[in-house]
């Protein structure tokens, strides 16, 4: 993967000396690295983006899951 642009590096030389010191340690985290969430529509008075995920245990046991 390409080296990410560093927020501090894209500041002008003048600006670099005029922002908080913490800006020198800003870390880029790739957005794609975060797992894709399964947000689904719901009745809107509850939520619009409703978080879905697999149940915490097998619901039935007919076909054993294959390891990925």
């Amino acid at each position: 993967m390409e080296t990410p642009p560093n927020l501090f590096e894209i500041l002008t030389e003048d600006a670099k000396d005029r922002v908080p010191v913490a800006y020198r340690a800003v870390e880029p985290i790739p957005i794609a690295g975060a797992p894709e969430l399964r947000l689904v529509e719901s009745r809107s008075y509850r939520a619009r983006g409703y978080f879905c995920k697999a149940f915490y245990k097998p619901v039935s046991k007919c076909v054993a899951p294959e390891p990925d």
Binding site: P4, P5, N6, L7, I10, P20, V21, A22, Y23, R24, A25, V26, E27, P28, I29, P30, I31, A32
Partner: peptide
């Protein structure tokens, strides 16, 4: 260490979030 005075912000730039976490200097 340094960190922001207020809430830390995640700034969106390209395909990355630039996060101001606590950093040792």
């Amino acid at each position: 260490i340094t960190k922001s005075i207020g809430e830390s912000r995640a700034l969106h730039l390209g395909d990355y979030f630039h996060t101001m976490l606590t950093a040792e200097i």
